[in-house]
Amino acid sequence: MAMLEIDNLHAKIEGDEGREILKGLSLTVNPGEVHAIMGPNGSGKSTLSYILAGKEDYEVTDGSVTLDGEDLLEMEIDERAAKGVFLAFQYPIEVPGVATMTFLRAALNAQRRTRGEEEISTPDFLRLVKDKAGALGISQDMLRRGVNVGFSGGEKKRMEILQMAILEPKLCILDETDSGLDIDALKVVSEGVNALRSPDRGMIVITHYQRLLNHIVPDFVHVMNKGRIVRSGGKELALELEANGYAEYQQDAA
């Protein structure tokens, strides 16, 4: 069975009578697969990630989304997280005063409780964070600071990957994870993501540029424009886009 099944999804901004942002998007992600979604600015890529995570600013007007056969759109935001949906934010949010360690532990235990699992013990938790943080070059000092407060762009993105590593989601959605990263940071982040590739885990990598896909090599590449997937292919499609740009798709759809 497909893990994530998006069928003919239509959506608009809530309360906005205006145009739809997603206009009949369909996508299937199976366990173990990495799907890249590319497209020009304003094509609806980030909207898709927000709708999957359950952000309340959007209204689904048609279509369906299921995760392991369950209706994802009916679930609360935190319920989706507990079911294994993880969104790595393009712009991670600052939560002042809440130490990153506190936050990580609260999130992990909340998810475990929702799934009816035991909470993690303090020593186990500390060990877990220490292991994962080291690989991503995240210092103890960063973990003591408020969530994302005073972090550089690169630090914020690494922190997102650390959270992903600790929460071990089923479906990872990476929204423009490469934006604002220099080449060294890009490497660290990509390695972190690659380490999480597994036969049980699906990933959707949203990006504007091909360069991220040199590091996180996808199984499938989809081109999105004006709220739809307009072309799908293998990893070579990304190279083609790099060479020719999005112009032809934008014309096609117009």
Partner: peptide, 17 residues
């Protein structure tokens, strides 16, 4: 939204923030 995406309930997220 950020806290709830990480799995915290409404009340938990409010308390944390």
């Amino acid at each position: 939204f950020y806290c709830r995406q990480r799995g915290l309930s409404d009340e938990e997220a409010t308390a944390l923030i």
